[in-house]
């Protein structure tokens, strides 16, 4: 019988094969390192693009200034209100979104019968897939008119109020609260489901009611997972751009509920296309501020996860 010379033999060890092996290992290494390269490049570019304006205009003037007139003859680039809007907008979105999301997660993991979960869970998962522009459109045509009615009711007869037609901080906050729901629900539900059954059984056996068990035993046991959910929600809310561009009114103001406001993200979306020179550089500074926020959130997140893993080991 003729000896097979097929290169498909898995037994032989020709030189060509060891070379292929080595090349394969190299290629996979390069793919792996690509993520590091990407993050380093993005960080470097954000700093290179965003930092010069801080020097040119002055750090204090940009970060603590409240007047945003980038195209005026004597331009001024204060972004304090923009930063505050992002912080307060995100905080308010959490105040609304986290309780609703957490309670929904409790419903799915602790209260609802399995059959109902099978129907409700896929429906709620759809929230994560809806594109942000669609949230923007619905917010613009459903929430804005409602907010306008509310505004008219609150500021009836006021002569000093700047009318926004409903495009205000509150509207953007509601849209953001809805957009963080899927994140909060999903992560908290997995956290709750990861709590060992024994905990619940022990608590119930000691005479606690179901609700007492949920709020005094299960929730505290799942706290690091829920903290993760909240932090991820913060990241989602502070980074969202397109959905709130349409509904926030988009003028630079102090972030009060019925003021037309501009977020870090919407500042970039609305002016990037026609900006140039120093104005463009300052827009990148805004990007850098947002990037700094995100990096802090990432660090907090990895801290929480590490702590959660340690607690689980105990």
């Amino acid at each position: 019988m003729k000896q097979s010379t097929s290169s498909f033999s898995i037994v032989g060890s020709s030189k060509a094969k060891t070379l292929t092996e080595r090349i394969a290992a190299r290629i996979f290494l390069v793919c792996g390192v690509f993520a590091i390269l990407a993050v380093v490049l993005i960080t470097a570019y954000m700093i290179i693009q965003g930092a010069p304006a801080l020097g040119q205009v002055g750090i204090g003037e940009i970060l603590l200034g409240t007047v945003w007139k980038p195209t005026a003859a004597d331009p001024s680039f204060g972004i304090l209100y923009i930063i505050l809007t992002s912080i307060i907008g995100t905080a308010l979105a959490l105040v609304i979104g986290v309780p609703i999301g957490l309670f929904t997660a409790i419903f799915l993991s602790e209260v609802a019968p399995k059959r109902l979960v099978k129907i409700v869970k896929p429906i709620i998962e759809l929230l994560a897939g809806i594109p942000s522009v669609v949230y923007g459109l619905v917010g613009l045509l459903v929430l804005n008119p409602l907010m306008y009615k509310l505004e008219m009711a609150v500021f009836k007869g006021s002569t000093t109020h700047q009318w926004t037609g409903g495009a205000n901080l509150l509207c953007a906050v509601l849209v953001l609260a809805i957009m963080i729901l899927p994140t909060v629900i999903n992560i908290s539900q997995s956290a709750l489901e990861a709590v060992p059954r024994d905990y619940r059984m022990t608590s119930l056996a000691l005479g606690a009611t179901k609700i007492q068990t949920i709020f005094h035993v299960t929730l505290p046991a799942a706290k690091s997972g829920i903290a993760t959910a909240v932090v991820l929600g913060v990241g989602r809310a502070i980074g969202e751009a397109m959905a709130i561009t349409m509904v926030a009114g988009n003028s630079v103001n102090l972030p009060l509920p019925f003021n037309s406001v501009r977020f870090l993200t919407t500042a970039m979306v609305s002016e990037m296309s026609y900006s140039s020179g120093l104005h463009r550089k300052v827009l990148f500074t805004i990007g850098l501020v947002l990037f700094a926020f995100i990096m802090v959130i990432n660090l907090v997140l990895s801290r929480i996860m590490k702590k959660g893993a340690q607690d689980a080991d105990k």
Binding site: E240, A241, M268, G287, I294, L301
Partner: peptide
């Protein structure tokens, strides 16, 4: 996975 898409857009 945590960087907002607008930052990717600027980059």
């Amino acid at each position: 996975s945590g960087i907002p898409s607008i930052i990717f857009g600027m980059f």
